[in-house]
Amino acid sequence: MATKLRPLSSVRPVLNNKYLIKGWLDRGAFSVTYGESNVGKTFFALDLSLHIAASHDWHGCKVDGGSVVYVAGEGGSGVLNRIEAVKREHPDLIAAASENGFSLLPTVLDLCGIGDAGALIEALRGAVPVLIVVDTLARAMGAGDENTATDMGAFVRNIDAIREATGAHVMVIHHSGKDASKGARGSSALRGAVDTEIELTRTDNVVMAETRKQRDMPCDKVFAYTLRSVFLGNDVDGDAVTSAVVEQAEAVSKKIRVSGQQKIALQALADAMAHHGEKKHGDMFPQTRQCVPLVVWRDYCDRHSLSGGEGESTRRTAFHKAKNALQEKGIVRVVDDFAWRCEE
C-alpha cells in the first residue's frame, strides 16, 4: 500500500484516454443503453458494435476498435435478420467486422446468479474482446429482481468480474422505468455503478441517443437516427420479410409527454379558459394569451373527475400534483394565482 502513495506534486493530468468511441465509450468501462420497448435499442447497439468490430468511424466519431461479443438474450431470429440487413446495405462494414472478430452469442445468461459469468469468462479465455454487449438486462437477471439493490448488486459484481477478466467494455441493454425521467428501470444501484448511460427516445420516426451520465467525460453527446426498412426475402406464404438499418438523421425537438391525469388537467384548463379566460396586464403575464384563476381551474378539474377520490383532501392533492408537474414541464405557468397555457 505504501508504494501506491503519491505526493500531490507528482500528480499529472491524463490527456489521452483510451476510448472505443471517442466522447461516448471508454475502454474497459461499464455502460447502460436504455429506452422504452420497441424504440430500437438492439438496432442501435448492433450498429455501434459492428462499427467497433470493423474499426470504422461511427457516424463521424473516432473509433479505436477490436473484437466484439454480442450476447443476444432476446430477439430470436430478429437479431439474425438485423445483421443480414446490415450485410446487404453495408457489406464493407460486415466484411471488416468479420475479419477483426464479431461474435454472436444467441443465448440467455444468468448474470445475477453464480456460474454463468464464470462460464462466459472461460469461453472467452484467450480472446481479447474490447466490447461485450449484454442484450438485455431483464433476460440476464435469472431469478433475480432488478428492483432490489441486493440482486442488482450481484448483477453488477458479475459484470465487474467479466470486465476484470477480459479487459472489455461491457454494455448492457435495458428498459426505461415507468417514469422515463427517472432513467433506466430497477434499482438505482445500477446507475451508481455505470460509467456511461445512454438514453434512447423516439419522436415520430426519429430516435435520439443521448448521454445521460459520463463519469469521466462531458455528458453532451447526441446521435439522431431513423430505421430504414430493408427487404430480405419472402417467407413460405409469399409474404415479405424485412428488417432495418440505422441511418443518421437530423436531431429533432422532443415532444413533451404528459400523463393521464395531466391530460385531464389540461383539458380542464382549456374548458375553464373558454368560459372564464381573461387578459391580465403587467410584465409577469403574457400579452397574447388568456389566463384563468387557479380556483376556477381547480373547479373544472373537479368537474372532469381529475381525482378518483371523493374527499376534499384527495381532490386538492391531485390538482396540486398535476399543476406542479405541468409547470415543471413548461406547459403551464402560474403567477399571482392565475394560470395560462405556455405551449400548444
Rank of each mutant, 00 (worst) to 15 (best):
E146V: 09
A140L: 14
D135S: 08
R163E: 02
E146P: 05
T136E: 07
L124G: 04
N158Y: 05
V133S: 06
D151S: 12
T150Y: 13
I121Q: 08
A127Y: 04
A127S: 02
T148I: 13
R157V: 12
I121T: 13
D135V: 02
A140T: 04
G126V: 08
I162V: 15
N158A: 08
T148E: 14
G153D: 13
A138C: 06
R139I: 08
L124T: 03
A161T: 14
D160G: 05
A149W: 13
D160Y: 01
A138D: 09
T136N: 10
G142R: 08
E146Q: 09
A123D: 02
A119I: 07
M152A: 04
T148R: 15
A149Q: 14
T150P: 07
V156P: 05
N158C: 07
T136H: 07
D151Y: 00
T150V: 15
A143Q: 15
N147L: 11
E122P: 03
D160P: 01
M141H: 08
G144Q: 10
V128A: 11
R139L: 10
E164D: 15
E164T: 15
A127N: 08
L137M: 12
L137T: 03
R163F: 10
A140E: 11
D135A: 02
L131K: 02
V130E: 06
V133G: 05
A161W: 12
D160M: 08
L124I: 03
L131C: 06
L124P: 00
D160T: 09
P129Y: 02
P129D: 08
G142H: 11
A138N: 05
R125S: 06
I159P: 02
R139Y: 09
P129H: 02
D151I: 05
